[in-house]
Amino acid sequence: GIPATNLSRVAGLEKQLAIELKVKQGAENMIQTYSNGSTKDRKLLLTAQQMLQDSKTKIDIIRMQLRRALQ
């Protein structure tokens, strides 16, 4: 079985993952909103794209940590 310490770690990672998935969803929504907007929305679009990139990276890292914890 999986050690108890790993189980609480997994629960924490799953919570983090859920949050990051919401951030990713929000960033994707912002990108959709701003991509057909005016030029003043360009900065917001770039910010949203950066957020999305960061979020995807975090999600990958969390998933990797989850896999390790579940081994």
Rank of each mutant, 00 (worst) to 15 (best):
I62Y: 02
E14I: 15
D60S: 14
L44A: 09
T47W: 06
K15T: 04
A18I: 07
Q71A: 12
A4K: 13
K24Q: 07
N6Y: 06
L7F: 03
R68L: 15
G37L: 06
L17Q: 00
A18R: 10
D54C: 11
S55H: 01
Q71D: 09
M64H: 10
T57R: 14
Q50G: 03
I19R: 15
K24T: 03
T47Y: 09
Q25N: 06
S38I: 12
I61A: 09
Q25G: 02
Q32M: 11
G26K: 15
I2H: 13
R63W: 08
R68T: 13
I2Q: 10
K58R: 09
L44S: 04
I59C: 03
L17A: 00
V23W: 03
E28N: 03
A27Y: 12
Q71C: 13
L70H: 04
K15L: 10
V23M: 06
V23K: 13
G12Y: 15
Q32V: 10
N6S: 11
M64Y: 10
I61D: 06
Q65M: 11
N29G: 07
L7R: 10
R68P: 01
R63K: 09
G37F: 03
L45F: 09
R67H: 08
K58T: 02
K15P: 01
I31M: 04
M30R: 04
K15I: 05
V23A: 08
N29D: 13
L46T: 04
T33D: 10
A69R: 02
L66R: 01
E20H: 07
D60N: 11
I59H: 01
K24R: 10
P3R: 02
T39A: 11
S8A: 15
Q71H: 13
I59F: 00
K15H: 06
A48K: 01
G26Y: 12
M64V: 08
Q25I: 08
S35Y: 13
G1E: 14
L66Y: 02
K56T: 14
I2F: 11
K15G: 03
G1M: 08
A27N: 01
A69C: 08
K15N: 04
N36V: 06
S35D: 04
S35K: 07
T39W: 06
D41S: 03
Q50H: 05
K15Q: 06
Q65H: 07
L70W: 07
K43Q: 10
I61F: 10
A4T: 12
Q16M: 13
N36T: 13
N6V: 12
V23T: 05
S35C: 14
G26V: 13
T57F: 06
A4L: 05
L21W: 05
E20T: 05
T33W: 08
M30A: 09
R68N: 10
Q65N: 04
G37C: 13
D54F: 03
R42C: 15
I2Y: 05
K40Q: 12
K43M: 08
P3A: 05
I2V: 11
G1F: 10
Q16K: 07
Y34I: 08
L70C: 10
M64Q: 14
